[in-house]
Amino acid sequence: MFGYVIRRILATIPVMGVVAIFVFLLLHLTPGDPAAVIAGDYASPADVERIRETLGLNRPLHIQFFTWAGQLFQGDLGVSIFSKQPVIKLIGQRIEPTLALATTTIIFAVLLAVPLGVLAAWKSGTWIDRSVMVFAVLGFSVPIFIIAYSMIWTLSIHLHWFPVQGYKSFLIQTGTGIDGAAIIGIGFEGICRDSGRAGCGLVPFFRHIALPSIALGLVYVALIARITRASVMEVLTEDYIRTAHAKGLSPRVVLIRHALKNASVPIVTIIGIGIALLLGGVVVTESVFNIPGLGRLTVDAILHRDYPIIQGLILIFAGVYVLINLLVDISYTFLDPRIRY
């Protein structure tokens, strides 16, 4: 097992290398010019050319690649062409909202979808099953922005239960260290660590993250519920389930301990894929709810051809995908003792 994990981690190195080369070439061969964007609409062609020169964008492609790769090996993702901020800092500013959104979304989706799927399988063919499946079809079919705007309209604008937009960190300043630096912790409500102003903490966090999580989570609820239902239904026809019933075990024990556990491999797989998709697929939700996360950073960087940011983000996304796949594979060994690496 340990050897397998090491082999898988080592195997990510060539994967990341291929991703790096592919992304770099793709970006630089795509039309679009950051120098022209920087110079603005009213700059002369000569000005644009001069800016391109100062940014090093007119150097041969292989030189640009090796410069970037050299920085990468030293752990430096470069500097944004536009804001001149280190890419790692920009990603650092955005990672918390995206991780928070992805985590709350997946928790919400799993907590709702798995029981619904099990219930639908258990009550297969009844109105409960049909209701869950209608809900699943709706969850798939209705675009996120429709759900999002509807919730904003009713719950934020009319009922004032939730804010319309924005993100508030759950981290707050809990005190000051002996060196004068703020001590950061988790609390219900307190002073934000970045702005020094009140309005952060768990309460504001959940008020701001609830609607985006529900809007984004519904599609995953639908997906996971369907897979859970299909998987549990398949297991419920197995001989050992019949045996368990014959032994006189209660339906709840049969369902949870025998059926759900044995049906969990495909469910865990789809949850893993869901987490990976969430990290890269939060763009619409982040835009509609104005959450300053990685999705928006990616889109902005692509629109402006901010190459270092795009390259850094794609490498990080690729790394996360590889890591999640690895974790899912490892989890199989716990869920199904027959699987060994």
Binding site: I186, G190, R197, A198
Partner: peptide, 22 residues
């Protein structure tokens, strides 16, 4: 520790919010 931090922060948050009129 967690509960202390939560309580402390709640108090801090309250006092900070009430004095700031930015």
């Amino acid at each position: 520790i967690g509960m202390s931090a939560l309580l402390a922060s709640a108090v801090l948050g309250f006092s900070a919010g009430s004095v700031m009129a930015e």
